[in-house]
Amino acid sequence: MTGMITLAGVTKAFGAKQVLQGVDLNIEKGQSVVVIGGSGSGKSVMLKSILGLLTPDSGTIHVDGTQTVGLSRRDRAHIDANIGMLFQNGALFDSLPVWRNVAFRGLQDNTLDMQAARDIAVTSLSQVGLGPELLDVFPAALSGGMQKRVGLARAIASKPDIIFFDEPTTGLDPIMTDVINHLICDCVRELGATTLTITHDMTSVRAIADKTALLYQGRIIWQGTTDELEQSDDPFLNQFINGLAHGPIEVEGQTVEATVTGGT
């Protein structure tokens, strides 16, 4: 296994619903990979499979050389320690103030004392464009975009080698989006981190991706660099990046509508 993260033949179903149907994806060390795909196509499920929060039905996932599918939490502790994750909806601990959220990992494993934790929190918050006045605020008192940015600060606070971003810029204004895009680039360039980002935002894709992969019907149906992305004449990809309702990708609501009219 050469890559930092390698998925091979990963499948996952929920009951009768086949979500992942054989995902193959390779991410090199220090690479920034972006996964795009329609809403409900299984992008978050793929991330959670890599994180071991969901167990794939079949296939293998190697992280930093270790096969992780089916590993117990204890057996993958050394991997978890090096991963940062931004959840799609933030998933901040609402019983803890912002600074305890951001420095959570360091406080838990006792590598940080209170003062050091607050300092780390200030630094990480400033990287996502938030000021120290938020340190003692509870997450419920923050706006959606601010929660997302605190989640980002938490994901990067411990300077992990691998960082996952699930829709980091959704719900942010254009300026903040640009700040976050730069932040993700910095994580890769300066910290040498390997990142996997999920996004719907094509400006983000162009700004941060070394490689882009399109997830459709449970498989990666296209992958390539940003240049290849612009030049590609793949009809699926074109429909997706240009945001067209008509094309080879079926929009679920429309098929249903068609059947209904056809039936009556």
Binding site: L51, G52, L53, R73, I83, F87, A91, D94
Partner: peptide, 21 residues
């Protein structure tokens, strides 16, 4: 109610990824 809310808002998943049982 508290732990259930943490479950459905993925806070329990977040705990796990932050190496906390």
């Amino acid at each position: 109610a508290e732990i259930g809310t943490m479950r459905v808002t993925e806070q329990i998943d977040a705990l796990t990824t932050l190496s906390t049982d």
